[in-house]
Nucleic acid binder design. Structure first.
Length: 267
DNA sequence: ATCAGCACCTGTTGGC
DNA sequence: TGCCAACAGGTGCTGA
């Protein structure tokens, strides 16, 4: 599923396409797609979109009245603007606009969720500090890791603490900083922490510049794939030679997620 | 606090 | 060719 760079790319694509559009109605084709805690979607009829942004891995569609329609794409969600009336394969929900276009949410695995929240209610989403937020400096990162015995990769994936990092970029940032994913988060040296934070920022920003990684399903708001998958150094490369030292990349399972690392470059 | 296991779902891939 | 198990950019819950 989309991680921070993919969600950022989708939001940047949707923003100019949706600004100023007025909702006519919402159609729900798979009821569980709507989060049980969501405000009633019918109340959006007549509302005008102000902008589209990102909160962690949520796409945040902000209305001029302050309400926010959040969309989490989980593993296979796609969010695109469609002009033709023909429903997409696996379309689960659609926001129709007065001009006849619609925002279509398609999701093969039905894991994705849509939720309408009130003005200023971003904190209801329960996500921690954004991985690209300026406030996440060495000091804040050290605070996040201090005393934690959980593997560093597991901590990087914990959205309640650090928002936006998913499996691909956690693996890549750990390779770039030469840290083994199983290392205890609280046991990293100051130098390793700083290297990791820098690597995390660098890999996320470079992935955004490449419009994300398309390993399988991901497409942006225009339906186009990203290209960062060509730059991946460990993710999905089990058994293939390390791009730095040629040692075969190892795959282990950590917190039920495929975890890839070079047993030589990462200690 | 942490973690294994499972649940949610469908589609694709790789081994036999 | 066919079958079946493993696996998938995520998260939330339960129970140990």
């Amino acid at each position: 599923m989309p991680e921070l760079p993919e969600v950022e790319t989708i939001a940047r694509g949707l923003d100019p396409a949706l600004r100023g559009r007025v909702v006519s109605r919402i159609a729900v084709y798979w009821h569980r797609t709507v989060d049980a805690r969501s405000a009633g979607l019918g109340s959006l009829a007549g509302a005008t979109i102000g902008s589209v942004g990102r909160v962690g891995k949520f796409v945040a569609i902000r209305f001029v009245d302050g309400r926010i329609l959040t969309v989490h794409l989980r593993m296979t969600g796609r969010l695109t603007v469609e002009r033709s009336r023909k429903p997409l394969l696996h379309e689960r929900l659609a926001v129709f606009f007065r001009d006849g276009a619609r925002l279509a949410f398609a999701d093969a695995r039905k894991f994705g969720r849509v939720r309408l929240i009130g003005p200023g209610a971003e904190s209801d989403l329960g996500v921690g500090i954004d991985a690209l937020h300026a406030e996440l400096d060495d000091r804040a990162f050290a605070q996040l890791l201090r005393g934690r015995r959980t593997p560093i990769k597991t901590l990087l994936l914990d959205q309640r603490r650090l928002a936006g990092v998913g499996n691909i970029y956690a693996n890549e940032a750990l390779f770039d900083s030469g840290i083994r994913p199983t290392r205890r988060a609280g046991g990293l040296s100051a130098g390793q922490r700083n290297k990791l934070l820098k690597a995390l920022r660098r890999v996320l920003l470079r992935a955004i510049a490449s419009r994300g990684s398309s390993v399988d399903d991901y497409v942006d708001a225009e339906g186009l794939p990203g290209s960062f998958q060509k730059s991946l150094k460990v993710y999905g490369r089990a058994g293939l030679p390390c791009r730095r030292c040629r040692t075969p990349i190892k795959r282990v399972v950590l917190a039920q997620r495929g975890t890839f690392y070079c047993p030589v470059c990462q200690q």
